[in-house]
Structures are given as structure tokens and as C-alpha cells.
Simulated assay, not measured.
Amino acid sequence: MMHYPTKMDDSQAVLNIIGLSKSFGSLQVLDNVSFSVAAGETVCLLGPSGSGKSTLLRCANWLERPDQGRILLKGEQVGVSNAGVVMSDRDLARMRMRIGMVFQHFALWPHLTVLQNVMEAPVHVQRRPKDVVREEAEALLRRVGMYEKRNAFPARLSGGQKQRIGIARALAMKPELLLFDEPTSALDPELVGEVLAVMRDLASEGMTMVVVTHEMAFARDAASRIAFMDRGAIVESAAPDVFFSAPATERARQFLQRYSAASDRSLASS
């Protein structure tokens, strides 16, 4: 049974997650997770597969309904009204407009062109003027290096190009928070760099982001903070230089050693 507290915490964080738990049947995926993200931070969620990273991200915008706990976006509870009642679909959609999400497998509309994909939600969900949205969408496509492909359909794009369109589409909603769920894991290795370059630019510009990733170099260079997850809990949170040079937990040390060994094997075989 979900517990719906009616009193809100007074928090300055853009995202504040408090005591979040989630199970699928008998499998507990998140176990009393609490963490916050300040304005302008890029927090990278690291950890082994199955540690709950993607589920945490999906709960943050109520794509998965948590069993217990609270998610606050600038002090407003996501998914639940001030009266402690589950939000209507309309109210939840309004809340989600404030949280952009970039998915692992792009999730572009195949029947729309690149430009139409970026314009669709601002025009039809936010009800903003089409001419204004078009101008902003074209600027975003230039920003991610995809303006020349504005009239192409997704089937004609590489994976890296599709993911850059996914980022532009999320930015078109002018979100207060941007969530990335392993945005490079479905890409061929040679296409990863072009997506990470866009994400690095966003981080340097102060976009508030939470990124689930296995790209350790990106996490080391672009993150403000690393949150390391294991077995449904955040077991360590530290600045990147501290985490990568002197992790505080044995589980994080093992994780980094395996990553280093895998990188060495990859270099040896190339």
C-alpha cells in the first residue's frame, strides 16, 4: 500500500526523493532510497545491472508508480496532490512537462519528421504557438547538430542521430530537470561520442540532469556528483574525483575494478 503524506517538505532541491521503495512482485528493486539534486547539478547514477538505477529514474516522473516514498519537484509532490490523492492523468501530464526524459531506445515517432518530432509536444501538449515552437525547434536542432536532417524521418537516421533528436525533443519542453536512461547503451561504439558531446555541453551550461550511464569517462568528466547504487539502494555519493580515486565502499571498489579490467581487455583486442 502506497503511503501518501499530505505535508510537503520545504526543500530548495530541484529533485528531492525521500524514502522511495518499489517492488515488482516479490523482487524489491528500490529499498528506501533518498537523494536530492540541486539546480545546475549533473548527477550520474552508477552501479551494476539490476541495481535499480532505471527504475529510480522512471519513478522520478511517475512512469513507474512507487510503493512508498515521495518525489518532490521544486517542493511540489509528483504523482500525488497536496490533499494526498493520486493525481489525475491530466495533472500528472502537466507535472511531467517539467521533467524531460531521454530514453535508451530513442522513442521517436516514426511517422513524423525530425522537426515534427521536436515540435509535437510543445504544440499539442503545451498548446504553444506553432510559429514560435518551429523557431525554437530549429534552434535546438542546430544546437545538437541535426538541423540539416530536419525534414528526414527517423528510419533514415543513425542511432546517434536519433538520440540527439531525442535530446532536442526533451529540451523543446523547457524542462526544469532532464533525465537520461542509459542514452548510449543502444548505440554502436563509434556513435557514442556524438551523443556524449551534446550531454557534456548541457552539463557545462548548467542544465539540471540525472544520468544513468555506464560511460565512466563521461561520469568522471561531466558529473557534479556520483551516486552509486547496489541492490536497490544508494550506498555511496561523492564528487567524481573522490569516487573514482578513493571509493568509500567495497562494492564500489569492486565495480570500478571490473570496469577497469573490461576497458583493458577492450583496448587489448582493438
Rank of each mutant, 00 (worst) to 15 (best):
M1L: 11
Y4T: 15
P5C: 05
K7Q: 15
M8I: 02
S11T: 15
Q12H: 14
A13C: 11
L15G: 05
N16M: 03
K22G: 08
G25L: 07
G25R: 02
S26H: 03
L27I: 14
L27K: 13
Q28D: 06
Q28C: 03
V29R: 05
V33R: 01
V33W: 01
S36F: 01
S36D: 15
G40Y: 14
G40R: 13
E41N: 00
C44P: 11
C44H: 03
L46E: 07
L46C: 08
G52N: 11
S54N: 05
N61M: 02
E64P: 13
E64F: 08
L72M: 12
E76D: 13
V85L: 06
V85I: 13
D89L: 01
D89N: 11
D91L: 08
A93Q: 15
R96T: 04
I99C: 04
A107R: 10
W109C: 10
H111E: 09
V114Y: 01
L115V: 13
V118L: 13
M119I: 02
E120L: 13
Q126H: 02
R127S: 13
R128Y: 02
P129K: 01
R134Y: 04
A137V: 03
E138P: 09
A139L: 13
L141N: 05
G145A: 12
N151A: 02
N151H: 11
A155T: 04
A155F: 12
R156S: 14
L157P: 14
S158C: 06
R164V: 07
G166H: 03
R169L: 10
A172H: 08
K174P: 07
K174F: 03
E176Y: 08
L178F: 06
F180N: 06
D181E: 09
D181Q: 08
S185M: 10
L187A: 04
V195D: 05
A197G: 08
A197W: 11
R200D: 08
D201Y: 04
A203D: 02
S204F: 00
M207S: 00
M207V: 13
M209V: 06
V211N: 01
V212E: 07
T213K: 06
M216C: 12
A219G: 15
R220I: 07
A222D: 01
S224K: 01
F228K: 01
I234R: 00
V235R: 09
V235S: 05
S237W: 06
A239C: 00
P240Y: 02
P240R: 00
F244E: 05
A248Y: 03
E250L: 07
E250N: 07
R251V: 14
Q257E: 15
R265V: 05
S266H: 06
S266V: 03
S266R: 06
A268D: 05
